[in-house]
C-alpha cells in the first residue's frame, strides 16, 4: 500500500511554477472566502460594518452625526470592548462597543458594532423617527440588556482611587447650536415589575447638536432594558434662558 502511494505520488502531474502559483492563489482565495464566511464576514472597520448594516436593513446611507472611535479606550476603561468619547467640557465618557448614529431627512439610525482584534464583526441597528425638534432616544440596540456606559472619577489624594459612575445612555440629537445647558427629568419603567421611577440625568455636549445623556439613580436601581418611560427636556442658552421645552414618551424604535 505504501509503495502504491509512493508510485501514485511520483506519477502525479508535474506543474510548472506558474501553474503552481495559480493553483495556490485559487486555493488561497477559496479558503480565504470560507474563513471569511466562517467568522460571519467581518470587515476591516466598524464604520464599514455600520454601512453594511444599513444596506442589509434596506436603508439609504445616513449622514454620520455621532460615532465612537474604533480604537482607544483610554487608561481608565473597565473593559477592552469600551470606547471613549470626550465631551466638549473634557469629560471622558465610556461606552461599550463602537457606536454610530446617522441621520436621514426623516429618521435617525443607531448601531453598535463589535470591534475585534483585526476586524469589526456584526452589530445591531435601530431607527427612530425625526420630527425636526430635539430627539431623545436610548443608546441601546437590544431589548435584553442596556449597554455599559460610565464616566470615571479619579481621586489622587488617596493614591489613585477610581470611582465608576454608571449610567443609562441616551442620545439627544437636533439640539439647537445656542444650547449651553440641558435639563432632563426622566421616569423609567423598572427592571422588575411595572414600577416607574424618576431618574437623575447628566448631559454632555459632544458638539454638532449632539448631546450624550446619562440617566442614573442614587440607589443603583436599573430600568427595564425596554427603556419605556417619559421625559421632560428643557434646553437653555448661555444666559440660562429657556430655549425649548419638550415632553413626551421615550420613543419606540421604528
Amino acid at each position: 500500500m505504501r509503495t502504491w502511494w509512493k508510485n501514485a505520488w511520483a506519477r502525479r502531474p508535474k506543474l510548472s511554477r506558474g501553474w503552481k502559483l495559480v493553483r495556490n492563489l485559487v486555493l488561497g482565495a477559496v479558503g480565504g472566502y470560507l474563513l471569511w464566511s466562517f467568522w460571519g464576514y467581518p470587515l476591516p472597520t466598524a464604520e464599514m460594518t455600520f454601512r453594511r448594516l444599513e444596506r442589509q436593513h434596506l436603508l439609504s446611507p445616513s449622514e454620520l452625526v455621532f460615532s465612537t472611535p474604533e480604537y482607544g479606550q483610554g487608561t481608565d476603561a473597565a473593559s477592552k470592548r469600551d470606547r471613549m468619547v470626550e465631551a466638549l467640557d473634557g469629560t471622558k465618557l465610556y461606552l461599550e462597543d463602537c457606536w454610530f448614529a446617522g441621520v436621514t431627512e426623516e429618521s435617525t439610525v443607531i448601531a453598535s458594532v463589535e470591534r475585534g482584534l483585526l476586524l469589526a464583526g456584526d452589530g445591531q441597528l435601530r431607527g427612530y423617527a425625526r420630527d425636526g425638534g430635539p430627539l431623545l432616544f436610548p443608546l441601546s440596540q437590544s431589548e435584553w440588556e442596556i449597554p455599559r456606559a460610565y464616566w470615571v472619577e479619579v481621586d489622587y489624594s488617596v493614591g489613585a482611587h477610581y470611582t465608576y459612575h454608571n449610567f443609562v445612555p441616551f442620545l439627544l440629537l437636533d439640539v439647537p447650536g445656542e444650547t449651553r445647558r440641558v435639563e432632563l427629568s426622566l421616569e423609567l419603567r423598572q427592571e422588575t415589575g411595572t414600577q416607574i421611577l424618576p431618574y437623575q440625568a447628566d448631559s454632555w455636549d459632544l458638539g454638532g447638536g449632539v448631546w450624550l445623556v446619562g440617566a442614573w439613580r442614587e440607589d443603583g436601581q436599573s430600568p427595564s432594558p425596554w427603556l419605556e418611560g417619559s421625559y421632560t427636556l428643557r434646553l437653555y442658552d448661555e444666559k440660562d434662558t429657556l430655549l425649548k421645552q419638550r415632553e413626551g414618551a421615550i420613543p419606540r424604535p421604528l
Partner: peptide
Amino acid sequence: WRLSQVLCTLVVLAALWGAMSGSNPPDI
C-alpha cells in the same frame, strides 16, 4: 510562488482553528 505557499498554509491552519473554535459553518 513562495507567498502563495504561505497563504495556503495559513488558510488551512486558520480553517482548522476556526473549525475547532466552534465558529458558525459558512453559508456556502
